[in-house]
Amino acid sequence: MQIIQPHYHAIARTAQDYERMAMSGVVAVAEPAFWAGFDRLYPETFIDYFRQISEFEPTRAAQYGIRHFSWVAVNPKEAENPTLTREVLKHFPEFFAKPTVLGVGETGLHKSTKNECDSLEAHVDIAMKHGQLVLIHTPHLADKAHGTKRVLEVLAGMNVDRERIWIDHVEEQTIRPCLDAGYWVGFTLYPITKCSPKRAVDMLEKYGTNRILVNSSADWGPSDPFTLQECILEYRRRGHSLQEAIEVFHNNPCRFLGQNPKFDIQPIRVETLSREPVSA
């Protein structure tokens, strides 16, 4: 079955990932800008990073027949340096012009400080002004409920197109207010620290599949890009049809990401052909 990985940090992964993903049906990945594991000091470091994910990484993915798209952002963990954030933001428009950049992300909150909230607002503002999509990171573990509430509060004070905003890493305690407010949401499947494949399927069964994306985990920390395939297996094992799986794991990414015309992969439908005569 054809699969799209909507949240994949390719530069932290080896080519073996691409090869195995291609063999398992992945046709496209989207790479949000991420934290490097340390706080970067210079705008130029971000610029080169954005060049890497918007220029070089698509060529690496293409060797395995996978389309690669990307997003630009200053990570929430680095928002305590507002001067740096402002300098990097000035360069966003040149990346919006790149053929595979889909928007701004992952912005969002980590500890929900004032600087983080200001940075989130600035990121969303520039995205809306340039007609870009937005991918918002919500905090982990104990900070998640409060951080998600703050994200919703910041967005509520802005003039935004909610259908173009994806609030990521939702879990059972945060999914409902995000969906009720009209945003897209994402489940992120980590081996231990976030959602699991089984819990993701539970939420799909409870909330339906509308405006929901499912991501694996794929970064430089303990993570596993094949949690997405594990989730698909769990979904199918519970009796959901192939088409229903395609709707969640391929067509929904097409619907959200396709709001940016650069993402030109179309939703698909499986069709059973009537029995055809065997030719001699």
Partner: peptide, 16 residues
């Protein structure tokens, strides 16, 4: 974190 993860899986099992 590992035990937290396993407890959440058990909670989800009961909810399911």
């Amino acid at each position: 974190l590992e035990s937290r993860h396993m407890l959440l899986e058990i909670a989800a099992h009961f909810d399911r």
